[in-house]
Design a protein around this nucleic acid. Sequence first.
DNA 1: TAGTTCACCTGAAAGC
DNA 2: TGCTTTCAGGTGAACT
Length: 285
Amino acid sequence: MPELPEVETIRRGLEPVLAGRRIGRAETRSPALRWPLPPQFAARLGGRRVGALGRRGKYLLVELDRGETLLIHFGMSGRMLVAEGNAEIAAIGRGTHHHIVLDLAEESGRPVARLVFCDPRRFGIMDLFPTSARDEHRLLGGLGPEPLGNEFGPDWLAARLAGRRAPVKNLLLDQRVIAGVGNIYASEALHRAGIAPVRAGGRIARHRVGQLAAAIRNVLAEAIEAGGSTLRDYRRADGELGYFQHHFAVYGRAGAPCRNPGCRGLVRSRVLGGRSTYWCPACQR
DNA sequence: TAGTTCACCTGAAAGC
DNA sequence: TGCTTTCAGGTGAACT
C-alpha cells in the first residue's frame, strides 16, 4: 500500500484538482472494497463542495461541506486516477478495477475533471463520517502520533517500546505506536538506525531509540521530498512515478551489498510477522 | 494482555 | 509458449 509518503504525495497532487470544486456526479461501480461502502454512498457525495485535503497516517481525509469528511485508505494497490479535459474524461473510469468515479465541476456546473479510485486487490477503504466525530472514528481514534509531527519523538517511542518483547519491526508497523509507517519504511528506518528488526522492542538502549525516532522522521521526509515510492501498483496522483525506490538501502535488495560506507555485509531477508523484512546483519544489531 | 497467524482479492513474476 | 504456483506495500479478527 501507499505508506505515509505516498499518501502525502497523493494528497498534494489531488489538492489543486479537488479543493474548492463541487462533486457533480458520483458513481460506485463495485460497492465491495475491503468493507461495504456506507449506505447511499454515491448519492451522498453528489453535489457536495470539497474543502481542504488532509491526511492522518495512511488515511486521506477529504473535507466536504455540510460537516462531513470522506475517508480514503488505499489498501495495498489503491490509486487515484485524474483526468482533465473532455477527451481524457471520456476515456477514463470504465476499467475493470475502477470502483468509484467522481466527476468534478466548477460552480457553474461545467465539468472540469474526473477522479477514479482504482484498486485491483480491493483492500482499499472509503467511508463518510461527521467531521466533528473524527477522533471517535473507529479507524482514526486509536492511531498513534504523526511521525513528522511534534508529538512523536524519542520519548514517545521509548515509552511505547518499553517492556515489549515483540520484534521492533513488528511494533513499528503497529499503527497505534506510530501512524503511517509501513513495511518498506520500517525496514529502511531500522537500517539507518543500525538496529536489527528482530530485536525485542524493549531491549533497545535509550540512545538508540532516539536514533530510531530520528531515522523514521528522516526516511519519511526524504521519501515525501522524492515524491513517494513506486513498486508494482503505486503511482502519484498525477500519474508520474515517485523516485524514492531508487534510494532503498535494504528493501527488496536481498543478497546485494549493504550500502553503508565501509560495510561489507550482504542484505538478508526473512519473513517477520508475516511480512518480508530486509536488513544487513553486519551493521544492524 | 501481548504476540502470532490467517484471510481478504487480484495481478505479476517465477517456476516448470 | 502456456499453465501453475507463489508472493505482494495493510489491517482486523481469531487464535495461542
